[in-house]
Design a binder for these strands. Sequence first.
DNA 1: AATGAATGAGGCTTCATTCAT
DNA 2: AATGAATGAAGCCTCATTCAT
Lengths: 210, 210, 210, 210
Amino acid sequence: MNAPHPSRKRRKEARPAEFLAAALGLFVEKGYSATRLEEIALRAGASKGTLYLYFKNKEALFQAVIQEGVLPIVAESEALAARHEGSSFALLEHLLDNWWMRIGTTDFAGIPKLMIAEASNFPEVARFYYENVILRTRALLARVLERGFASGEFRRMDAETCIDLLIAPILMLVIWRHSLAVYQSQPTDPRQYLSMHMNLLRQGLLTPQV
Amino acid sequence: MNAPHPSRKRRKEARPAEFLAAALGLFVEKGYSATRLEEIALRAGASKGTLYLYFKNKEALFQAVIQEGVLPIVAESEALAARHEGSSFALLEHLLDNWWMRIGTTDFAGIPKLMIAEASNFPEVARFYYENVILRTRALLARVLERGFASGEFRRMDAETCIDLLIAPILMLVIWRHSLAVYQSQPTDPRQYLSMHMNLLRQGLLTPQV
Amino acid sequence: MNAPHPSRKRRKEARPAEFLAAALGLFVEKGYSATRLEEIALRAGASKGTLYLYFKNKEALFQAVIQEGVLPIVAESEALAARHEGSSFALLEHLLDNWWMRIGTTDFAGIPKLMIAEASNFPEVARFYYENVILRTRALLARVLERGFASGEFRRMDAETCIDLLIAPILMLVIWRHSLAVYQSQPTDPRQYLSMHMNLLRQGLLTPQV
Amino acid sequence: MNAPHPSRKRRKEARPAEFLAAALGLFVEKGYSATRLEEIALRAGASKGTLYLYFKNKEALFQAVIQEGVLPIVAESEALAARHEGSSFALLEHLLDNWWMRIGTTDFAGIPKLMIAEASNFPEVARFYYENVILRTRALLARVLERGFASGEFRRMDAETCIDLLIAPILMLVIWRHSLAVYQSQPTDPRQYLSMHMNLLRQGLLTPQV
DNA sequence: AATGAATGAGGCTTCATTCAT
DNA sequence: AATGAATGAAGCCTCATTCAT
C-alpha cells in the first residue's frame, strides 16, 4: 500500500493520471454524486487541495476522466482494421479480441456504465462520448460489414441494427461486471460468453455455404 | 397544472404511487444522489414534508421504487410460460413481445439502468433485485431452453451463457433508451432491433432441418 | 391503558386538563424543546389537531402547564399558616408535611425542574412563577420566621438566607427525583431526608434552652 | 470583535476548547435542544462547518461538554482531602471554599443544571456523570464524615442522608444562579449563603461540648 | 507544489401549525 | 368538536471549494 513513493519528479508528472485513475474507479463504483473528492484524493495518495491544482473542479475532473479514458479506445481499433487482411468476420473477431485485452480487462471497462449513468447530468460530455467513441466505433464496424456484404461473405441485412446487436452483448458484459456481477454465485466466464456471442453472430451473419 | 383536489381520502391512497412514479422517473434520469427530494415531491404534486408521511427517508423511497417497480415484472412472464403451447422458440418470442408491451414501453423500463448504477450503493436492494428478478427470469428461461433441448428443437449448448446472450440485447435496449439515445440522430427502431435479435437467435439456436 | 373512555360530556370538559397533565409529564421528562406535540396528544388520548382547539400554540401550552400547576401550591399553605396555633417550628414542620403530601408526591413536583430548565427561554412565565410562587412562598416563610424571632423561639439570623437554606434541600429533593435519581442503586428515602433536614434546622434555628 | 487570527496551527489546538466553552454557555442558558449549532459556532468565532471538524455531531459535542467540564472537578478535591490536617469539619469548610473558588464562580458551575435538565435525554452521559462526579464526590465526603464519627468530632447520624443535605444547598445555589436568579431584585450573596449553610451544619453535626 | 483547516451553500429531515373533512 | 393529512420553516449535517501556511 504505502510503497515508498518514487522520485518526486516522476510523482509530479504522474499526479494527474493518478487522480484520473482514482476518480475513474470511484465514479464507476459509486456514481459521480456519491463520490467525495476527498476519497479520490486519498486513493490517489494526495490531499484534497492538491486535486484543485490539476482540475478546476469536480465536473472538470469527470470530463477528464471520460476524455482520457476514451482516448486509447478507438484509434487502435481503426489502425488494426486498416492493416487487416483476411475475411471480414475474422476482422470482427480480431477487433473483439484486441478490445477485450486492451480495454475489457482494464478499469476503462467501467466507462460505459459511468457514461450511461451520468449522460443526462453531463450532456456535453455525453455528446463528446457519443461522437468520439460511439459514432466512430459504429463507422468502423459499418465499413467492416459493408466489406462483408460486398464480398458476399455476409448476407445482406440492415447494417445499423446489425451493429447494435454486435455491440450490445459486449457492452452488457462490462456493465454487468461493474454492477450486479458480485451477486452471482457462479460468475460468467467472459471468454466463453464472448465466444458464444461470436458464434451466434456467425450463424446469423455468414452467407450459408450450400 | 393545479388539478382540482380529489377527496382527501382518495388522495391519500394514491399518494405512495404518485411519489413512486415521480421518484422512479427522476432516479432513472439523474441518478439517486443527484435527485433532490423536493424535486420528487414537486413532480408528485406534493410538498417535501408530505413525502415523509409515506416513506421513512430517501433510501426507503429508493427501495420502494425498486420493489414496487419489480413486482409486476416476473410473475406475469411465468404465468404466460406456464400456459404456453407450441414450440419453445415461439414461447421465447411470445415472452419478449409481452415484456416489451407491458414493461419495455413503460417507465419501469428505466429500472435496469437505475439498478445497475446504484447496485454498489444499495447492496441490500441489489440483492433483492438479483434474486427476485434476475434469478427468477433466468430460471424461467432455463426451463424454456431445457424444453427445447429435450425436444430436439434447439441444438444443445451452454444454457447459462445462452441466457446471457438472450437477455443482453434486450437489457441494452432499455438502458440505451434511458441514457445516450437522445444523442442519436436516427433513433433505433426497437421493433426492428428486437426482431433482428430474435432472428439471429433463431439461426443460432434452432437445430438445422436438413 | 385503553380504558373505555368515560361519557363524552365528561371527556370534553376534562380535555384541557388531560393535555396539561400529559404536557407536564413530558416537559419535565424530556424538556420543552425535545417534547413533540404529537407525543403530548397521544398521551392525552387525543390527536394533534385537538390540542389546538384548547391552546393557541406550544408556548401557550407551556404557560398553562406552569400556571395551572402552580395554582394549588401556595394558597393552601397560606391558609394552613393562617389557622395554625402552636410553635413556629411546628408550623414549619406542618407546612412541609402538607406540601410533601399535596405536591411533593404528585407530578407537580416536576415543575421546579421544568421551570429552572426553561426560565431563560420563557422570561414571562419565569417572572410569573417567580412572583406567584417563589416570592409568595418566601413571604409566607418570612412571616413564620419573624414570629419565631419575635417570640424568642428562634435565634435571630438573616431571614432571607435562612429561607434559602430552608427551601434548598426541599427543592433539590424533587429536582433530583426527576433527573439523576434513576441512576442511584439505593434510592434516597424522602421521609428520612426531609426529617433530617428539619432536625438540622431545629439545631440551628431554635434558641438553646440552658 | 474580529481579533487578528493567531497562526493556523495554534488556532487548531485551541478550537475544541473554544467550541466547548461556547457550547457549555449556551446549553446551560437555553438547554440542549433550543441551542442551535450555528449559535455555538458564532460564539466560538468559527463557522458551522468547522464545528464538525472537531465533533462528530451535536450529541458528541454535548458529551464532550460534560466530560471535559467534569474533569477538573473531583480530582482536586480528593487531593486536597488527602493532604488535610486538622479537624474534619475544617476539612469540609476547606473543600467548600476551594470548590467555590475553582468551580462555583466559573462557567462549569452551570453543569449541574445542564445535567439535571438533560439526564433523561442522554442516559449514557448521565450515567458517566453520576459515576464520575456524584459517586466520587459522595465517597470523598463519606470518608470525611466517617473520620469525624470515629474521632467523636461528629455525632453519629446516617451518613448518606447527611451527605445529601450537605450537598443540596450547594447545588441549589449554582442551579439558582443559572436560572431564576435574574428575577431576584436583591440577589443572594453566595458567600453569606454558604457561610450560613456551614453554620447550620456545624450546629447539627458537631458533638455538643458540655 | 502541496496541504488541510475553514467555509457556507445546499440537501435531508423534523415538527409546529394549518385546514379540509 | 375532532381528526390527521399536508405544509414549509428551520435545524442538522455534508462536502465542494477556498486559502493561509
